[in-house]
């Protein structure tokens, strides 16, 4: 029962969505919309689970005097302040929550995003080694694209931007399409396995 019920729910939901995709009419639309609404409601309740998990994990660290307890305390304080301000004063423009989000969280998110530039540099330095013929081709292509995409590239050789464009739109695009088609078929095959109950590993079985 513990496995059969989820498999049955997956089958009914999957079949409903397939019918909604190929069918039309108020009954089909209403059924699929109801299913999507249920999904949103379940997602909303699940958010509570997430909040409970955060508090539980970090409270445990504080109470067991874990070496990271100060980070945990900081997290819980921020959690209460941010959540509390939203609940008490609302989350619209100009509220305390909005101010905290715009002035503290948003710049921190931008900082994390900008760290990517540093990580791309170190990853490229390490990864682009001409160890074989194929990696040498990859290395040359990467350098042409990098130079072709910046203003300096055209001073080195005026044809570089065109070469870079060709690499991006022909070989790179061909490979991406191949990966995409394979992935789409893989996703469809996995969906079919789930709907038919053949695939149960996501339930911890198999």
């Amino acid at each position: 029962m513990k496995t059969r019920l989820p498999v049955l729910v997956a089958f009914i939901s999957g079949a409903l969505m397939i019918i909604a995709f190929f069918g039309r009419g108020s009954m089909v639309d209403a059924a699929s919309e109801t299913a999507l609404t249920w999904q949103s409601i379940v997602g909303g309740f699940a958010l509570l689970l997430g909040a409970v998990s955060i508090v539980r994990v970090h409270w445990q660290k504080i109470s067991t005097r874990h070496e990271d307890r100060f980070y945990s305390a900081c997290l819980l304080v921020c959690f209460v302040v941010m959540g509390g301000s939203g609940v008490v004063f609302g989350i619209g423009g100009g509220t305390l929550f909005d101010g905290l989000f715009q002035r503290i969280q948003a710049p921190m998110m931008s900082t994390m995003f900008s760290v990517l530039a540093f990580f791309i540099a170190s990853a490229a330095y390490r990864a682009f080694r001409a160890r074989s013929v194929s990696s040498a081709i990859l290395l040359v292509a990467a350098m042409v694209v990098m130079l072709g995409r910046i203003p300096m590239g055209q001073y080195i050789y005026h044809g570089l931007p065109a070469w870079a464009d060709w690499i991006m739109t022909v070989p790179s695009m061909a490979v991406q399409r191949g990966i995409l088609i394979g992935a789409a078929l893989g996703a469809a095959s996995m969906s079919l396995r789930i709907i038919l109950g053949v695939e149960r590993t996501y339930l911890g079985r198999g």
């Binding site: 394979g182 893989g186 996995m190």
Partner: peptide, 18 residues
């Protein structure tokens, strides 16, 4: 890469149906 991710569960389980 791509579809290998979706094939992983079948590959690991060895279930002939998958």
């Amino acid at each position: 890469i791509g579809e290998e991710l979706y094939a992983a569960s079948a590959y690991l389980s060895g279930d002939p149906r998958m």
